[in-house]
Amino acid sequence: MLEIINIHKTFDPGTINEKKALDGLSLTLHEGDFVTVIGGNGAGKSTMLNAVAGVWPVDEGSILIDGVDVTGLPEYKRAKYLGRVFQDPMTGTAATMQIEENLAMANRRGLRRFLRWGVTAKERAKYLSLLKELNLGLEDRMTVKAGLLSGGQRQALTLLMATLQKPKLLLLDEHTAALDPKTAAKVLEITDKIVSENHLTTMMVTHNMKDAITHGNRLIMMHEGRIILDISGEEKKSLHVKDLLQKFEEISGEEFATDKNILN
């Protein structure tokens, strides 16, 4: 479903801030894979997601989504293949637009936008039932501006928006990192539900090792712009945070030592 072939990306090349963010990264995702991505700060996790989403062009290598080479496509053209949820809850929704208007924007992802009415009555019924399933009370607030929602509600709404048009690939970029633990758990629960119901191919970046182990069928660990560990199936199910930390030290020769990871 997703093929990343030997991509490279260096930020600010030739300057004092030069940073090699992706260094010959390759990865293949099969249909229905739910991959969790972990790694230290600056390992290239978000950079990989941004490369796939087309936030900027890569320096070298190819990216294929469902067999289509998207390496040369700008972000807005790749959008038709991708559902995305961001770390910052503010990023995923338009604050000054109503909940139903946000959903209607997402419902037309990848389609041409002409002079047809922005939200139709038929759509509204569909959104109502989908919002009801979220169980957050949003179904009664469809004409409320998205900016009035809490962080967790906005992330849940963004998740719904990302999957309204079934994407070839769902990209979750630390989408629970800005939420309190209880809300984060709720959003993850919704994530699991939506992913399994729609059989979505998913990549989820997280700082939380426990989440990375309990969710998905495959786990990859990144370090210095490359994948250093790729575990799936039964082996992943039996993983513990302790094993992951140990493996990280073995492979990278460094300690996986940010407070966030230890506390988690």
Binding site: K80, T91, T93, A104, M105, A106, R113, L115
Partner: peptide
């Protein structure tokens, strides 16, 4: 009427949140 259509909504979304608009396939 116009800012209630699909295209008008896309213009409003562009002004409100360019990142979201791009993610929804809008050429901002």
């Amino acid at each position: 009427w116009y800012f209630g259509t699909e295209q008008g909504s896309a213009i409003r979304a562009t002004g409100c949140n360019p990142a979201m608009s791009k993610a929804q396939g809008v050429n901002i």
